[in-house]
């Protein structure tokens, strides 16, 4: 996990983003046990209370569940994870489209631009 944190923004939000990426990308697979809050806090160099807060938010989203004695697990609900992944992707895409339109690209141009870029990478 890479914990690049920016002190200008609330840390718990950034931790949430990193953990969420870990879950949707399969670094933390569906149904798997997550490391302890303390261990992750040490790894990230943050306060355990802040890490706990990020976990609480993941629990509220239903992506993580706590079992009293066994610890924390990623949800078994793969569909839910997929929906989160789509939500993140949509968010990124919106940012990208906004940026491209700011640069003066028309929607059609953006599509052909993306297509040719992908073709280019295929040939590499």
């Amino acid at each position: 996990m890479s914990w690049k944190l920016d002190s200008d923004r609330p840390i718990h939000k950034q931790l949430l983003e990193v953990l969420l990426t870990g879950i949707v990308s399969g670094t933390y697979p569906s149904g798997s046990k997550l490391p302890s809050v303390r261990d992750l806090a040490m790894e990230a160099g943050v306060n355990p209370n802040t890490m706990q807060r990020a976990f609480t938010e993941l629990e509220q989203k239903g992506l993580v569940r706590t079992e009293r004695t066994a610890g924390r697990f990623v949800t078994d609900d793969r569909e839910k994870i997929e929906r989160s992944r789509d939500a993140i992707a949509t968010q990124q895409l919106t940012l990208f489209l906004d940026k491209m339109q700011q640069l003066g690209f028309q929607k059609k141009e953006i599509v052909s631009f993306v297509r040719s870029k992908i073709e280019e990478e295929k040939n590499e």
Binding site: S7, D8, R9, P10, I11, H12, T50, R53
Partner: peptide, 14 residues
Amino acid sequence: VEDLREEKGKSLDA
């Protein structure tokens, strides 16, 4: 500290 960051959009150092 987290409230402060949220409110000011800045690091504690700043």
